[in-house]
Amino acid sequence: MNEMIPGVGEPVVTDATKGGGSNAARIAEVKAWLAAQFDAAGKEVPDFEYTPRSIVHLYNLATVSQAKTQAANIVANDFRQKAAEYRSQAARIREILENVGLAQESLPSNVVASAQVLANVANLLNIRDTELSRWEEKQNGSSFLVAMGDISLRKTGVDEKRAKVHKESKTLLEYTRKAIARLTYLKRTLAQLEDDVAPCDAQMENWKTNLGVMASKERQYTQQYNNYKALLNRVGYTPEINHGVLVEMAEHRKDLEKKTKPILDTLRSYQDLPPDKALAALAIEDKKRQYAAAEKYLEDVLQSALATSD
């Protein structure tokens, strides 16, 4: 078969687009086309069911195949006609050359080789002759020289593009080398960081544990501070009672204890005497006066100490 699948943009025949012709005519045309294609391939048409869908598809294939076959026949006929013209022209030129004694058999081998090289170059340059019309000859010279100049210009352009591409490739190669070096450095850094992950995680867990302990201690110390502050407020502590004042009061207390100790010893000695109510009352009153004087002295010392600290 010349064509099995319709190309893009090819006309497709359907029941809506194909107005003329019945289904029987289409089936007959499809059968004839299939028989012709399989006969050309040396095979028989296989048996299958002719459904409306398959008939439409095969009819479209047949239409496209016939159209392309017709176009190929036209091109082939044109090529055959041109080949016949070229053979006729070659025979005429060969006759002319033989008449003037320039037949290929009578020419030296080097001339034949040069002519063959010239023909190959002409085919490569896609030129048909070595001269242009009179006006073109005045403007550009022979078509061979024009073609050679054109190909020289193309070669120059290709060389320039090649140099540009080479320069760009060198730049890209340099960028690639730098990128590879940077990638290698990043991979090495990544590997080092991955190795440091485990120790850092362990250290972070340790810090986290210590932070929890410190937070717990902070709450404990804060509670103790609040408790001590409430206790100081309850006993009447003020900022004026500092360490120096307390030390001074302790020293005065020691002095008072030294002064009151003989009195207490005397009172204890009185306990061993026989009871005498009148003398005991006098002694008690005397000791009360002494004790009151000592308390007044202690209060005066405290007041003076507080005044000095202010």
Rank of each mutant, 00 (worst) to 15 (best):
T308M: 11
V247Y: 13
G19I: 01
W135I: 14
E160H: 03
K258Y: 14
A91R: 03
K167H: 08
N110F: 02
L58I: 03
T260D: 06
A25V: 09
A72T: 04
G101W: 03
R289E: 09
N73H: 11
D150P: 02
V245Q: 00
A91E: 10
K288R: 12
L256T: 09
V247E: 13
A35H: 09
G7M: 01
Y297K: 11
R154S: 06
D300Y: 10
T69G: 15
G141N: 04
E98W: 04
L193Q: 14
M148S: 12
L124A: 15
L145S: 15
C200W: 06
R268S: 02
Q203S: 06
F48H: 02
S143A: 10
T222C: 03
A198L: 10
K187D: 13
N60I: 00
K217T: 13
S142N: 06
N120S: 11
Y221K: 05
L132I: 06
E10C: 05
D310Y: 11
E85Q: 07
T176D: 09
I180W: 00
E257Q: 14
N226K: 15
K259C: 13
E160Y: 00
P108W: 01
V158N: 13
L145P: 05
L107F: 05
S304R: 15
V12M: 04
Y228E: 13
M1N: 05
A281Y: 01
K82R: 12
N99Q: 14
T63K: 03
Y221P: 03
A32H: 07
A36S: 07
P46W: 03
K138D: 12
K43G: 05
N126H: 08
Y175D: 14
G19W: 03
Q66F: 06
A84F: 06
K229I: 09
Y86R: 13
A283S: 11
E248W: 10
A147I: 03
N123R: 10
A198R: 10
S88K: 07
A278D: 08
Q224P: 12
